[in-house]
Simulated scan of single mutants.
Amino acid sequence: MMGRKTSPGFLVLLALGFLFASYNLITMSVHYKASKGSWLADGFDLFDPVIRVPGRAERAGKTNSKYHVAVTATDAPYSQWQCRIMYYWYKKVKDLPGSDMGSFTRVLHSGTPDNLMKEIPTFIVDPLPEGLDRGYIVLNRPWAFVQWLEKANIEEEYILMAEPDHIFVKPLPNLAHGKNPAGFPFFYIKPAEHEKIIRKFYPEEKGPVTNIDPIGNSPVIIEKTLLEEIAPTWVNISLRMKDDPTTDKTFGWVLEMYAYAVASALHGVRHTLRKDFMLQPPWDLEVGRNFIIHYTYGCDYTMKGELTYGKIGEWRFDKRSYLNGPPPRNLSLPPPGVPESVVRLVKMVNEATANIPGWGES
């Protein structure tokens, strides 16, 4: 049975309480779901994108349900230009064969309208109370989803949680199966290697830490009612992790990702792990049959096409080079020898910026 929806007002009071009281004295009313069953190992077959499937999921089944694309964002220029590129490619692939994409929403957690309201469908939510994120702005993501799910009229039965630095390479079908969401396995999310920390938030009576998937919240396709149940717990775990010095230091910038993975496990939810959900240049060399390019890493190369990761290259594309404004139109293409994934990324950025009206204008 699904848990009742938690009101945003209650969560604000709860969040403020974290500033003044021990987390051991604060609890949320969460109805934990029973275990979804064991996992079936599919191995790492080069031609099989599915790494693991929850035992109850029908491997060959396909849902016809549309999903709503939701991306959390701020009004900072850095976030805005990425959202504009993402929305351009969403519109390009949305209605192509094989797509289960529904509507699109930029969930803006800056609290006030910005200059993209007419360009991108946007829903405004409040940020966390001042100071609660402690400079880690990503903590606003789970709180933004709680508010959006509570207040917005969402017609689709499923949600794709995405990020501004995602580019849709091709139409994305609904990879979820009923109560079994689909997620991407991140190589750096390793709950079993941090069991001592994880047990602070996932007690032994809930089961082994291997019940926690190696995922973040994005990209994830999940049933809307299931996300409504998980999201308040995700807020709670995120704030508790940030408040614990050891956890904060260990997990760093991926803390909120661990929080979603733990929150899902607390509700007994397991994800189908899809390694074809997205690729991450420069480490993934080819686009192949993947659906999304995630350009979180800098791409630095010599003019001979040699990777110089960690050192600024003679040729580079790094989104962090454009913190205060968008990249210019017609970026130079990578030199010969650079992987196809990086070339494709730059070409897709160039196409978007060439066709988005007013690109680079203040």
Rank of each mutant, 00 (worst) to 15 (best):
W143E: 07
D243K: 04
L139T: 05
R84L: 15
R106Y: 13
E204G: 07
Y258S: 01
L128S: 01
L172N: 10
G9L: 12
K196P: 06
G325K: 13
P203A: 04
V169Q: 07
P327N: 15
K319I: 13
F20D: 14
I137L: 10
F123L: 05
A265L: 07
G207A: 13
F187N: 15
S38D: 11
H194N: 15
R320L: 11
P245N: 04
K311M: 11
V169T: 13
I197G: 02
P191T: 04
T74N: 05
A152Q: 04
S264F: 12
Y295V: 14
I120F: 02
V69Q: 08
A41F: 12
D165G: 08
K62R: 13
D300L: 09
K36A: 14
E150R: 10
K224W: 06
Y260I: 02
Y136V: 14
E306M: 05
Q280L: 13
F145A: 06
I154A: 05
S238R: 00
E119K: 01
I51F: 06
L16F: 09
S29T: 08
L239D: 06
L226R: 03
Y258A: 02
V93K: 03
E119L: 08
K36C: 11
L255G: 01
G131T: 08
F186V: 09
G325I: 12
V125N: 02
I293F: 04
E340L: 00
D48P: 06
D213L: 05
L40F: 14
L307W: 05
P328A: 07
M303W: 04
V287P: 00
K5P: 01
G37T: 07
P357R: 00
L14D: 14
P282A: 03
A182W: 03
L307Q: 11
I212T: 06
V254M: 09
I312L: 14
S341T: 02
L40D: 10
A182M: 08
P334W: 01
I212D: 09
M241A: 06
V93H: 12
N217L: 09
T250H: 00
L239R: 00
P214D: 06
R199K: 13
P97F: 06
E314M: 07
Y67Q: 08
S321H: 09
N153Q: 11
P171M: 04
T296V: 15
A21V: 15
T6M: 07
D276M: 11
P326A: 10
D248R: 04
P173E: 07
P336S: 02
